[in-house]
């Protein structure tokens, strides 16, 4: 199932609704990279609240998305990692290094807002 990507001002929101196949993840990555340029977005929020598993491929793809977004001038934040998922990621030795994380969508917006302010007024 493809992931819907919503646009809210300068921020793109990818809200994952169900378990993702590897193909879905790659598609999400491509689509985000494309849309960041098209909408001149400065932030990307990926909401994974609905995910109850995250494997090495998913974490690697998320790292890839964050790095890609940075190169395109946007900051990516992953929000809504469930407690059990967080434990599993750490115990499996997977990392989300270089990826900003926040509790939920609201926190993610707050985080992006702060970093945009830091970068100076428009």
């Amino acid at each position: 199932m493809p992931v819907p990507i919503l646009k809210q001002g300068e921020v793109l929101i990818a809200s994952i609704q169900a378990a993702l196949t590897d193909h879905d993840l790659l598609q999400l990555k491509d689509e985000l990279a494309d849309k960041i340029g098209r909408f001149r977005s400065r932030g990307v929020i990926i909401d994974v609240t609905a995910l109850d598993v995250m494997d090495s491929f998913a974490t690697r793809t998320l790292r890839g998305i964050a790095a890609t977004a940075r190169l395109r001038g946007a900051q990516a934040v992953v929000v809504g990692i469930q407690p059990d998922v967080a434990i599993a990621i750490v115990q499996l030795g997977l990392t989300l290094q270089g990826v900003a994380t926040a509790l939920d969508l609201e926190e993610g917006f707050e985080m992006l807002r702060r970093s945009m302010v830091k970068e100076g007024p428009q």
């Binding site: 990692i81 407690p83 998922v85 990621i89 994380t101």
Partner: peptide, 12 residues
Amino acid sequence: IQTVEAAALMGA
């Protein structure tokens, strides 16, 4: 260490 890292993933 794992607890701290897991909490960081949740933004805390």
